[in-house]
Design a protein around this nucleic acid. Structure first.
Length: 257
DNA sequence: ATGTCCCGCACGGCGGGA
């Protein structure tokens, strides 16, 4: 069972690339972020034509998340991260696909930091910590996949010294992410490739992809039942080199059925 | 500081977000 996460940076702008990627790699589950569309304009038919069931939670202009599952419908559990009913950003959707609980998340960027946006990011990370604690021991295999907007360590960025004041790499951000991981979650890609340089994002500026000046910010966190089934994982980095790419590349893992 | 892409608004670039 292959599970992928892909920040598309607009589902409409990215539909040709998304279709090509789904056809070429055929993931069983695809978690999408940054749809940038109201729910009613989500291209449901185009997704279903490729053989995927789908649930989504859109928002005009910003954010937006979706879970696609090949050959079946995701069974929705929730479409908001608990803990703040006044937070209306579409940043979280959760479903069961076959026997795996999938949380699809788009964590706030948080820049500029410090500031209100950074405070919101840290509150969101704390809400995720509380919810992750509920999920981890639920008895199911659980995968929390998405754009975390967190660079976990200096090995996950091309020049860490340039990012120390950025909301993606500030100490507060890494510590908040660490408090989630220490519950017993495993960062699947780093677990499989402990010493490799792996990026999932290259910004559109200054030929970042051509220079391989990237960041690793798209993660799949696994609880123990999921980790026991982990076989492989990686990044479809060539997708970042396609015409009209997202600034992120799809990141995937394979679990035993 | 800059760079680029995408959105809405509303048809021409501009502001906001990343």
């Amino acid at each position: 069972m292959r599970i992928a996460t892909y920040n598309v940076n607009s589902i409409h702008a990215r539909l040709p690339s998304l279709q090509r990627w789904l056809q070429e790699t055929s993931p069983d589950v695809a978690c999408l972020q940054e749809l940038k569309t109201p729910s009613e304009k989500f291209p449901e038919a185009a997704i279903r034509e490729l053989g995927y069931g789908v649930i989504w939670h859109g928002q005009k202009s910003y954010n937006g998340v979706a879970i696609l599952s090949k050959g079946c419908e995701p069974t929705e559990i929730r479409r908001a991260l608990p803990g703040d009913p006044e937070d209306l950003h579409s940043r979280y959707i959760e479903a069961v696909v076959r026997d795996v609980v999938i949380g699809c998340l788009y964590l706030p960027n948080g820049n500029p930091a410090p500031g209100e946006k950074f405070d919101y990011k840290l509150r969101w990370l704390e809400r995720l910590r509380v919810h992750a604690a509920e999920l981890i021991g639920s008895g199911n295999a659980v995968v929390l996949a998405g754009d975390y907007n967190v660079i976990p360590t200096g090995n996950d960025v091309y020049k860490p010294e340039r990012w120390v004041d950025d909301a993606l790499f500030r100490v507060e951000t890494r510590e908040a992410f660490g408090r989630i991981v220490e519950q017993g979650w495993v960062d699947a890609i780093r677990h499989l490739h402990p010493d490799a340089t792996i990026y999932t994002f290259w910004d559109y500026f200054r030929n970042a992809y051509g220079r391989d000046a990237g960041l690793r910010i798209d993660h799949l966190l696994l609880n123990a039942p999921a980790l026991r089934r982990l076989k492989a994982g990686g990044v479809n980095r060539d997708v970042r080199g396609w015409e009209k790419p997202s600034d992120h590349a799809p990141t995937w893992i394979e679990l035993e059925d």
